[in-house]
Amino acid sequence: MAETLGMVAGLGILIVMVAVAMYGIGFLVLATPFMRWVLILLVAFLALRVVLLPFTYLSIWVNGYPEVSLEAEVRAKTVFVLTTKTVPTRRSSRFTLLAEGTITNKGQQFIRELAVECRVSKLSFGDSEMAYQRLTVSVMPGETKSFSGIIATDLIGVSVRGDLALQPPDQHFCRLQQVQT
């Protein structure tokens, strides 16, 4: 009984503390003019941008646009060599797709991650399944790095006539889907 009372009391104190903290912070943020000042500043900034729009059209800033690198552009500046193979997954009737290879960064940006996408045959009638995996790499501009990793461990496999158990996928195709800078 005393233990239950203690738990209820503790819970009550916790609820009160959370409520006080939330209302307290909420009061400071909402009931003081601080947030309104922030909003007014934001509106002033946006209004200035709107006022300056005609000058932008006059091409004053055309050369001042930021250089935006699309992901595809970074990927286009890589040399990607990939080798893949399928092996049975341990303690499972499924199959594992392993990948290893090298990536050369011929661009100007640091590459920290790459994503490999694979299409793998499954069952029969030409059916297939997709597998994706992100692999961590650290490739500085001009560098070539090796990588290896598991793309999938739960591939179904293909059915072969005369064999009850599913066999390793007979076909697969992998590509570099994305690089993260």
């Binding site: 946006l46 941008r49 709107v50 646009y65 930021p66 250089e67 935006v68």
Partner: peptide, 16 residues
């Protein structure tokens, strides 16, 4: 309102 005006009227980045 201002964000909408900027979105509609801003010229696009020509390089992009």
């Amino acid at each position: 309102g201002l964000i909408l005006i900027l979105g509609r009227c801003s010229p696009d980045n020509p390089k992009l």
